[in-house]
Amino acid sequence: MTETQRSGAAEDDIIAVPLRHPWRWVSAGILGLLFTWLVVLLWDNPNIDHATIGEYLFNPRILTGAVTTVVLTFAAMAVSTVLAVIVAGMRLSANPVLSFIAGFYVWVLRGTPLLVQIVFWGYLGLLFSEIVFGVPLTDIVFLRADTNALIPPLVAGLIALILNQTAYSAEIVRAGLLSVDSGQREAAYSLGMSPLRTFSKIVLPQAMRVILPPMGNETISMLKDTSLLSVIAVLELYTAATRISSQNLRQVELLIVISVWYVIMTTALSIPQHYLEKRFGRGTGARDGFADRMISRVGSAVRTRREARG
């Protein structure tokens, strides 16, 4: 196509009446009505005290709980991702012992409920009353401590989340590593790169493109799974809310309060994910979804403003 044809109207340009989409309007109308009905139901409900929601939205105990939730999420995801790369590497290793151990780990940790694992780690003191670091089967001891003192609920919960997430993330990482063409490895080897260099410089960066989208999903799941730690009395967002509602008996209002916070936090998480996916999508023509386009637009608007001001 030449420049003139693109800018000016040519004789054979198609001028047609666009196809109508009446059902889009019908479906939008029905859903709009249902949504309005839902809002009215909640708003007019005498059992919901709206003042309580406003009062507790920025309550210090709620905010502290939200911070704990965020810290737990990031700590668990960071550590489990590193472990997951190791477990995935072991799983794909030519060493049959490493491969078996990694497979066994994933099998057990994925095969039992997270809730059970959390309670197990929380009650570790019942199984081992004290923890001893030393050389097994000898009298050499470096550290001896009471289990409940060494592993408070917060730490027990974190361990449970990390170990469980590692199993899931390892499978995601493994799929990512397998998605990289074997020719990439051969090309790196033929240039004299060692297996470790090949893994870190060539295979893993390419696997990231496949790994990141599901890992964003896992992070959002993790944020909400931290609420399970309420069973071992870790004071994260959900536990903080239940402590308050057990005193003022405003259960529903406090659930709405923390739901608002959970939605805010999961929304915020999609922003770094967008930029990470961009970073590791270099060299591929991956198309952005709706959320990516919105974030890009906001990001560039902020930049333009800053440039205009400075």
Partner: peptide
């Protein structure tokens, strides 16, 4: 020993 492959195998990233 340099090697050139049938399917190039450039690093796409």
């Amino acid at each position: 020993i340099g090697m050139v492959f049938q399917r190039f195998n450039l690093f796409p990233h």
